[in-house]
Amino acid sequence: MDFFLGGLTRGLGLLINLDPEVYGIAWLSLRVSLSAVILAALAAVPLGLVIGQREFLGKRFLVVLFNTLLALPTVVVGLVVYGLLSYHGPLGGMGILYTPWAMVAAQAVLAFPLITALVIAAVITLDNRVGPTALTLGATPMQAAWAVLREARFAVLAALAAGFGRVITEVGAAIMVGGNIRHYTRTFTTAIALETSKGEFAQGMALGFFLLVVALAVNLASHQLQARWK
């Protein structure tokens, strides 16, 4: 039992003691994962809207494809992004391997199919007259799309929250392309993996607890946004 209690008390200690290294880790995790989700959403939300609302040849195939991509293991995404960003890879010239940017890229790739699939699911069940009605009322196509998005806003925000949960908890891709460099690319999950491998189980548990607190704060903020955006 002291295994769990020890981790919990240490987690509280980390929160209160303002250990600069731990706060650095928390800040980096938050920054990387939020950036990744926003970048992924910029592509995934419009794409999900189009796939969900329009009828076209191959629509079913795309839906199945995005649902299948949800099964992508994070380590595989890490490997693929590593292959792209590595010196000998096609994007090696950018020189961003082992920087936070590499982690943002890998996590955006991870979040993209998840957000797309959930947005499709959200708008596919929506009354498909919302868009056309808006159009007949004189809305531009952009405004019509916005109207559809508004109708599905709760499900879309849930999709973003799910994307955020997926990327801030993943360790395989972050450790592979970030390198777990101290004070630079060490996130919550890579730090937990490191502490566990060192036998510092209490520190690992404590960081896990801290991660949950950060996730809670993010979800509270997004909930707040949801409540206002009526």
């Binding site: 980096l28 920054r31 939020l34 950036s35 020189g95 961003i96 920087t99 936070p100 940017w101």
Partner: peptide
């Protein structure tokens, strides 16, 4: 978020 990390 994107501007904050001093990357290079």
């Amino acid at each position: 978020l994107l501007a904050a990390p001093a990357m290079a």
